[in-house]
């Protein structure tokens, strides 16, 4: 019975009403302290934070999760390790993190509803869903020098000939950990943990200086 299954976990919407509550992204302090160089014609990398998205960790068997995701969001679970797929709008993505773990990113405010619907579909199956929206943020990097910038930062092979669009990996970034994803020919994404965001941001500004990195706000 899905109702009893629902009652065996604590399902709680932790998102506040952004109209009445001031929310701060993990970069709030960094933008103030380290600044944000404006993008220019010379910028070969442009950084943008996609703030306040819904981030859900999905755990469980691929087959049941795939079915539920298709029904709820019309996205199939990526079949291959270290890949991700998007829904038709491109606003929702699901990424393989581990044989039994995926990262689902949805527009801000959708996370709780998606979690509830998925839980309803999944019923008594063996699975887990955890909302981690407050704990990480998504940065996009756009420009022809992004691979070079990433080569200065991550140990994974980010040569575009090796790192196809639709690939995503968890790897070492400087002395922290990030998820690196490629969402377009010259468009890449980093999923950064909140507590490391300031360090990663400062690292990116520093490493990006030679590519005239700009930050879009």
């Amino acid at each position: 019975m899905s109702n009893s299954a629902m009652s065996r976990v604590n399902l709680y919407d932790t998102r506040a009403d952004h109209a009445s509550v001031a929310a701060e992204t993990p970069l709030a302090y960094s933008l103030q302290r380290s600044g944000a160089p404006a993008p220019s014609a010379a910028s070969r990398v442009v950084l943008r934070e996609q703030a306040f998205l819904g981030h859900l960790i999905l755990r469980g068997g691929a087959i049941v999760l795939d079915e539920a995701l298709r029904e709820v969001l019309d996205i199939g679970l990526p079949g291959r390790p270290n890949t991700l797929s998007w829904d038709a709008s491109g606003e929702r993505s699901i990424q393989w993190l581990s044989p039994d773990e995926w990262l689902l990113i949805v527009p801000g405010g959708e996370a709780f509803a998606v979690e509830r619907q998925l839980r309803e579909r999944l019923g008594d199956a063996s699975f887990a869903i955890v909302d981690v929206s407050g704990g990480q943020t998504l940065l996009t990097l756009e420009g022809d020098a992004v691979p070079e910038l990433l080569m200065k930062s991550v140990v994974y092979d980010v040569d575009p000939s090796h790192f196809a669009v639709g690939k995503g990996v968890t790897t070492v970034f400087a002395k922290a950990t990030v998820i690196v994803r490629r969402s377009g020919e010259s468009r890449w994404e980093l999923v950064v943990r909140r507590s490391f965001a300031d360090y990663c941001y400062r690292w990116l500004l520093d490493a990006g200086e030679e590519y005239a990195i700009g930050v879009e706000r």
Partner: peptide, 10 residues
């Protein structure tokens, strides 16, 4: 599990 070669730092 990742089915590829990765660096020792990971």
């Amino acid at each position: 599990y990742c089915e590829e070669l990765r660096e020792e730092e990971e």
